[in-house]
Design a binder for these strands. Structure first.
Lengths: 204, 204
DNA sequence: CGGTACGTTGTGGTC
DNA sequence: GACCACAGCGTACCG
């Protein structure tokens, strides 16, 4: 698919999951190899408007329109400042280090540094109907140690996520919950303690 | 601040909250009015790399570098395909309709259509230390009706969010929880029922 | 500032 | 295809 960018004056309308208008103003449209379209304004990192890959393009009079399923993105074009084809645009993905997954692996490989119990067995990404548990260790007494890992300071919703898993496993087991993260705020720490869970400091 | 776009061959390094490399390949850099920088690849809507507003720029040899606080984004430039200034780029924000807030208002204005109880008082965005409750109605018996609203099909984490509020208010009150959303999946519905909560179908 | 939640979340993985 | 969770989430808003 042909990729291009378009710098234009116009108004942008989106209809689909929600409905929105943007402008009139001067914006940048990106049409990518995968058929996705995004409209960027002069501030913010995220696109003002967008439509996912394989969007079909239609043009009529001064309207440029992209459609996909029940979604449509229409630009009422007042003036094209600048248009440029983008050839050989790479689709490489970013290689990131310091992800949550790394913290899980660190915890899995060095669990004896972080826990005061001996595990008979340890699972990672243990799947349940309520979501997958980052790490689950079972000790010789059968106590289930449920660990939710976060790559940055943990939030209150992380505690609720942990509680969801703990409550579920508590139906059939004795359970201890842990939140493993590099940092924790006071409010979250208080809530965590109130629920009988423990915070594990873990870092990259 | 001067805004521009740069289509280039090169490698991108990020360091800060995480660490990443991208490429070598051909990418598009956007430098916006607000001093933010984003690197786009030939697919996907979101930027491959980015750095927030007011990033400082430095250039040396064939390296272009943007810094902000403890974050840095560095491009090892092999070849500039082309470069273009972007003047008068609008910073208008999108005006969206069909937001969660609208659903909350709809529920607030027409609560008698959705609930079988009479409320003495109704709050929206009722603030607690564990987060703000979308809607809270108190009936003549003092029962607190806690409503979490979602603009699309509700997820299991929405149930946990609701449970967090319900548990908190249950310390001092009789409480009934509701999840108001346009749709709900089977698994989530089962979990919701198990917790004694109710689903309210609400739509735009 | 930190804390919390929304988002047309996007995107990937798993079942 | 539905479901679930992460993300350098970004961004807004309220304290």
């Amino acid at each position: 698919m042909t990729s291009y960018l378009l710098y234009f004056d116009g108004t942008v309308y989106y209809n689909g999951r929600a409905s929105s208008t943007l402008g009139p103003g001067r914006f940048l449209l990106l049409r990518k190899n995968d058929g996705s379209v995004s409209i960027h304004g002069g501030s913010l990192i995220v696109a003002r408007n967008y439509i996912g890959k394989n969007a079909k393009c239609q043009s009529r009079n001064n309207y440029l329109s992209f459609c996909k399923g029940g979604e449509s993105l229409t630009i009422e074009m007042a003036n094209i400042i600048y248009c440029q084809e983008l050839n050989d645009w790479s689709e490489d993905l970013v290689q990131v280090v310091r992800t949550e997954q790394e913290l899980v692996e660190k915890l899995f490989d060095n669990w004896f540094d972080y826990f005061d119990v001996d595990f008979d067995i340890i699972y990672t990404e243990y799947s349940t109907s309520l979501g997958s548990i980052d790490m689950l260790g079972i000790d010789s007494d059968g106590v289930h140690h449920v660990v939710e890992v976060k790559r940055r300071k943990c939030s209150i919703s992380a505690v609720s996520q942990l509680k969801r898993y703990v409550d579920e496993l508590s139906k059939n087991n004795r359970v201890q919950g842990y939140l493993a993260a590099p940092a924790i705020g006071k409010n979250v720490a208080r809530y965590l303690e109130e629920l009988g869970f423990r915070w594990i400091r873990i870092d990259f």
